[in-house]
Nucleic acid binder design. Sequence first.
DNA 1: AAGCGTTTGTGAAAAACTTCACATGAAGGC
DNA 2: GCCTTCATGTGAAGTTTTTCACAAACGCTT
Lengths: 210, 210
Amino acid sequence: MKKSGRPVIPRKTIYRLSIYLRCLARLRENSIGTVSSEALAKAAGVKPTQLRKDLAYFGTFGTRGLGYDVNELSLKISDELGTSSLQPVILVGVGNLGLALLSYRGFEKEGFEIIAAFDAEPRRKRDKEIKQPILGMDEMTSFIREHGVKMAILSVPAAAAQVVANRLIESGVMGILNFSPIVLAVPEDVMVNNVNLAIELENLSYFIQS
Amino acid sequence: MKKSGRPVIPRKTIYRLSIYLRCLARLRENSIGTVSSEALAKAAGVKPTQLRKDLAYFGTFGTRGLGYDVNELSLKISDELGTSSLQPVILVGVGNLGLALLSYRGFEKEGFEIIAAFDAEPRRKRDKEIKQPILGMDEMTSFIREHGVKMAILSVPAAAAQVVANRLIESGVMGILNFSPIVLAVPEDVMVNNVNLAIELENLSYFIQS
DNA sequence: AAGCGTTTGTGAAAAACTTCACATGAAGGC
DNA sequence: GCCTTCATGTGAAGTTTTTCACAAACGCTT
């Protein structure tokens, strides 16, 4: 049975919807009420037709001859992305990077909250004051189940990544933002997004040489 | 006129080459001398045919019936990516995230070195000891020129990102790894890779809901 | 030295994604 | 109320990327 009449929205489109949403937020801050696909596309770094195609996947919101209502479009994209409700996230691996992510005040504004962190040495001295509790790995599974956590940020060393990922998935986590420099093996229904800084740099360096 | 006989290698392929390189490194650590496209592809999370197509863009290195020599293939990919030589990188914006990146001991191993950081308040008290100098923004341009810096990591607040990017580009930077949550407007010959954590999370959350 | 099993390399097909071209609809002036 | 102007929405065309299918080539065994 097909799940209602909705078309499958391509992964790349979803990615761009997030970008549009941020551009729209800036327009709102500047009290701009209406925007054309041309202007919004420029702000997002894409072509106008692409923006319109992206939106067409889940509705038609524009007014011909005029453009899009900034507030309305924000709402519709937010709705589509399911960003309307605050999602609880946990972080595993409180090293340098993990600690920085914990202190990063940019998530809440965007609809996410890191509600707890886990580390093999939870009581290790850390330079920085943070508000989230740092718990031991043995408490992880029960915490995930109790709080219905569905997403995790993984910033443990490479050697531990797969083991920890397995435990996360067993406990009910469905999405992992992976900062470890290895490719995780996961079941099909689990989603992994990789952020690998060395690869990004390597990538840059290749293209600026040519 | 076509620029020598070399085909243009797609961006995505370059990205995957970096991944293959890391998988090969792990095989080497385990003293594995030969690997089939099937095994390597599995480790990298891609299909075997894709791996072979990717390699075919710049040569043929395998032995039919046997597979690839791990050392040789590592070398060839490294060569292609131009990762053989250490690249100097600067970081701009020493906030939470910037500081974490400075402390991150994963770049050198991969052929990059953050040789200096810049901040509007270079003398601000920071909790952590780091080895790189933190300089003022007024010293940035001369530093870039003197050291022939071609790549920069941008981790300043959104409001400052475009202005700083402009200055980086004027000074000679050709590649920017952008952590600010805005889309930078840059000339065609300048390459920007965006890393936006909120978008990655949003992306995850969308796909685990369906 | 020939045959067998295995794995690469690659043209061709398929799928995914982007861009084009233009008809359609809405707002505002005359 | 009609006409002009503007910008959306969308089928079709184009491009890029992935996957398929299979011939060619190598090592190993006999």
